[in-house]
């Protein structure tokens, strides 16, 4: 049994998700089998590959657990156009304590859907909500225009960048920061980090809305620095109404 208030086991939940992914059952049927939704939030974490999202996520999961919330993660990776296969490789850093029924992690391949989210992501999120998870995290790769899709499902969006090889410039071009509620500069001990930081702060100022000023968090995820600050920022954004503040014209 999960301790998430849901009524099904981890095994059953995993199978339900497969069934939804393969269109074997409808999402409403899956949800009713999964249980009854608790109060939940969806957090999108986005940023280019290699920026350190998974390390960040691993620490964030631990932090959410430490503040007594259950966490489900969907990590989305691209399907190879050539073979139809996919490598869902970042799992290791998202493994916290095993035997902790309050964490559920599932990798999903895009299976032919261009962009960051699979066609089934929203449906799988619904199932996880019904299973009683409180914090639902969707991790996506890529900096494409379609990444903006995250915003449609998320109550809070975290954009992660780094000072390495012009990540930040690409993300600006793609409009990723425009959808961000919190910006993270990971690897902030790299050369050139100060310049990027200045740019990001300037960029964040332009995003302020209805009393929410978008914070830019300095992070060195590999050394566990900046994680608590991130978690607190997410929490205070959600406490102020989350996705309902300001920018959600895209939503719905």
């Amino acid at each position: 049994m999960t301790d998430t208030g849901g009524k099904i086991s981890t095994l059953e939940l995993a199978r339900l998700i497969t069934a939804v992914e393969n269109s074997e059952i409808t999402v409403s049927e899956a949800c009713s089998r999964a249980g009854k939704a608790e109060n939940s939030f969806v957090i999108g974490i986005t940023g280019p590959p290699g920026v350190g999202k998974s390390t960040l996520l691993n620490h964030l999961i631990r932090d959410f657990r430490a503040t007594n919330r259950t966490v489900a993660v969907i990590a989305v990776d691209p399907t190879s156009i050539l073979s139809g296969g996919a490598l869902l490789g970042d799992r290791i850093r998202m493994q916290t304590n095993t035997g902790d029924r309050g964490v559920f992690i599932r990798s999903m391949a895009t299976r032919g859907h261009l962009g960051g989210l699979t066609g089934k992501t929203t449906e799988v999120l619904e199932v996880l909500k019904s299973a009683g998870f409180e914090m639902l995290i969707v991790e996506t790769v890529g900096v494409g225009q379609t990444e903006v899709e995250v915003v449609r499902v998320a109550d809070a969006v975290v954009a992660v960048t780094s000072p390495a090889h012009g990540d930040e410039i690409q993300m600006m071009k793609a409009g990723i920061f425009e959808i961000a509620d919190v910006i993270v500069l990971n690897k902030s001990d790299y050369k050139g980090a100060e310049n990027v930081m200045r740019d990001l702060i300037r960029c964040a100022e332009g995003l302020n809305r209805n009393g929410w000023s978008v914070p830019v968090i300095r992070m060195i995820a590999a050394e566990q620095q900046g994680i608590t600050e991130l978690r607190e920022s997410i929490d205070s954004f959600l406490a102020q109404g989350g996705g309902s503040i300001g920018k959600r014209s895209l939503k719905g």
């Binding site: 390390t55 691993n58 490598l87 490789g89 970042d90 799992r91 290791i92 850093r93 590999a222 050394e223």
Partner: peptide, 10 residues
């Protein structure tokens, strides 16, 4: 000091 976490590259 914490522990190093593998940077999985595939």
């Amino acid at each position: 000091w914490g522990e190093y976490q593998e940077r999985v590259v595939l």
